[in-house]
Design a protein around this nucleic acid. Structure first.
Lengths: 234, 234
DNA sequence: ACCTGAACACCGTTCAAGT
DNA sequence: ACCTGAACACCGTTCAAGT
């Protein structure tokens, strides 16, 4: 089931007439990923967007993995959560966590991209983890525990955004999106009622427009609460 | 950088001489994914393993997405956590969560597979979510909150196993694995000391053989603690 | 019902060559 | 230094045909 790409949606990166740079390619790729999904980011497609031959990209990136790494680093570089140093660690942790969630909400392809690369190779990951580690050290955790927690928090943020209620495939028109959600809810309510009563009850409880704010508020609390509880228990 | 596959490691699924079935294909694919990574699971490779033409698989699965769905459902079907109904919800939640973590540890490709498919289409997901929802209802959560929590727990389990300390690429010999970990730790300790002091401290604190049991014990507590804290706060 | 053969539109990547 | 052209080994998938 292939879609033959005759037309080529341009993400406004080649109009500058400039030569390619790591930054412009990463920016273009990020837009493409957000708009059409990470699977749309291929070397060949990206080259087409930039008005260039596929092999041109190999001058700037060693291979596709490096390209993806470049996108992640580019996107994460914008995260700047400098909480007031005087605040208690709980508040600072929440601030940095919310900042990470915020970038991912701006760039919905980020969770998938982060799964596809070895994040430890990016500078932004090192920075964020280092800062979080310092913070968690104030909370009384060992570095090892802190690293486990920091990893868990990043992963939780990724899952949080990827699992946002009402999510639908990238590049879908908003009318179609509503219908898509309706279909999904309907399919769930068609499950065998004797074996999946709670699923059906859930499907019935879901409104037409999901309450995204309540979702994030609740889940952020849930995730932070775990860390606070662990800190309290030592 | 392609590896030309001249030899073909067989995963012992075609020796039966039987015809293909969904179950045997899924089983073979799961073994392959666990041994060589999810990216090794291609229609063509799988066909070769089964001693059959690629198109033969299309009789049993509509397309690759359905095949991946089949693998996930096959793997998750083995999860059977029937906790004593009399136990408090905290204990039952922990039991089911640990059961999910256990299957993923047995099948390290599962987290990646679960990311690649729409889990809501599998029966095993519906069953697990339904049971967890009932449990969380006992804890005083609404169905909506319960669904958010259940989703978060599944995601956390995936991240937990995928982020296991000492993890290394599938199919790596254990001597190479030790060297691989050493290299990783070394790279981290080579970060600029002024900007990433905590990362360096962490790298120094990591032993040669990671304490996997402590990792899982701590992280399971961390994740469960979040749910308990939220339940207590209403 | 179950599987094969040949073909098509994609992929990432290498290597030699152009400016 | 930066990019192109042609080629190679892969991919998923369709469609007609075989038993």
């Amino acid at each position: 089931m292939y879609v033959v790409h005759e037309t080529c949606t341009l993400y406004g990166c080649q109009v500058t007439g400039d030569r390619l740079t790591k930054a412009t390619v990463a920016e273009c790729a990020l837009r493409l990923a957000d708009a059409e999904g990470v699977e749309a980011v291929t070397i060949r497609r990206l080259a087409k967007e930039q008005g260039v031959t596929p092999m041109a990209l190999y001058w700037h990136f060693k291979n596709k993995d490096e390209l993806l790494l470049g996108i992640v680093d580019h996107a994460l570089a914008t995260v700047r959560a400098d909480p007031a140093a005087g605040d208690p660690w709980q508040k600072r942790l929440r601030t940095v966590f919310e900042a990470v969630v915020a970038v991912m909400r701006e760039h919905p392809s980020l969770p998938t991209l982060l799964h596809a690369v070895d994040k430890t190779q990016t500078e932004s990951f090192s920075r964020a983890t280092n800062d979080t580690l310092a913070l968690l050290s104030d909370a009384g955790f060992t570095v090892e525990e802190g690293y486990w927690i920091a990893t868990h928090l990043l992963n939780a943020a990724m899952g949080l955004v990827a699992g946002e209620p009402g999510w639908c495939p990238p590049g879908m028109a908003s009318e179609d999106a509503a219908e898509w959600r309706r279909q999904k809810r309907l399919r769930m309510s068609l499950l065998p009622a004797d074996r999946f009563p709670m699923m059906i009850e859930y499907a019935a409880s879901v409104g037409d427009v999901p309450d995204v704010d309540r979702y994030y508020a609740f889940c952020v609390d849930l995730i932070i609460a775990g860390v606070e509880a662990m800190a309290a228990s030592r």
